[in-house]
């Protein structure tokens, strides 16, 4: 991908809401959360929210690293692998009780939810996104100019 900083942030928020939101809605009831459906939704949407908000900060770091690349591109592989540090940070925040409204999340449920959501968002960003948004890729990933 060839993102600009603003494009990174816009794409991140858009895809986590538009793709991550419905996916979370679908997958939550079958996750091994060990809690009732209401509490499970509370936990998974909290994870999605924290991933989105922290993601904006992560994008600043990724954009900074991109400056060392001559092509100023962001290889497809990087878009997938950045999920590892991002996922770990979100997990530590929940497990460490830093998220004030959350009582923590079940480990297996978190891994399943986070990895499938990340994978899906990554897949959409690397192709299908260009179908409805034909201007998106030439605008550095910006949806709003």
């Amino acid at each position: 991908m060839l993102p600009t900083l603003s494009g990174r942030i816009q794409t991140r928020i858009f895809l986590l809401v538009v793709v991550g939101g419905p996916w979370t809605l679908i997958i939550t009831p079958v996750l091994p959360t060990g809690a009732d459906v209401g509490a499970s939704y509370g936990a998974t949407f909290s994870v999605l929210l924290v991933t989105t908000v922290l993601g904006v900060l992560w994008e600043l770091l990724w954009h900074g690293l991109q400056q060392f690349r001559w092509e100023k591109d962001w290889p497809t592989l990087f878009g997938l692998l950045t999920g590892i540090p991002e996922g770990l940070l979100v997990w530590f925040l929940f497990a460490g009780g830093v998220v004030p409204w959350s009582d923590g999340v079940a480990g297996a449920a978190f891994v399943l939810h986070f990895t499938t959501t990340w994978l899906l968002v990554w897949l959409v960003a690397n192709g299908p996104m260009r179908v409805p948004f034909v201007h998106w890729r030439i605008n550095g990933g910006r949806l709003v100019p």
Partner: peptide, 27 residues
């Protein structure tokens, strides 16, 4: 921040411009 790879006489680049001219930062 703008160093292109090269060796043995050649300057190496995937395409005829740095890739981000087609949509990214350089564009």
């Amino acid at each position: 921040f703008s160093r292109r790879p090269g060796a043995d006489g050649w300057a190496y680049q995937g395409f005829n411009y740095p890739k981000s001219v087609w949509g990214g930062q350089l564009k």
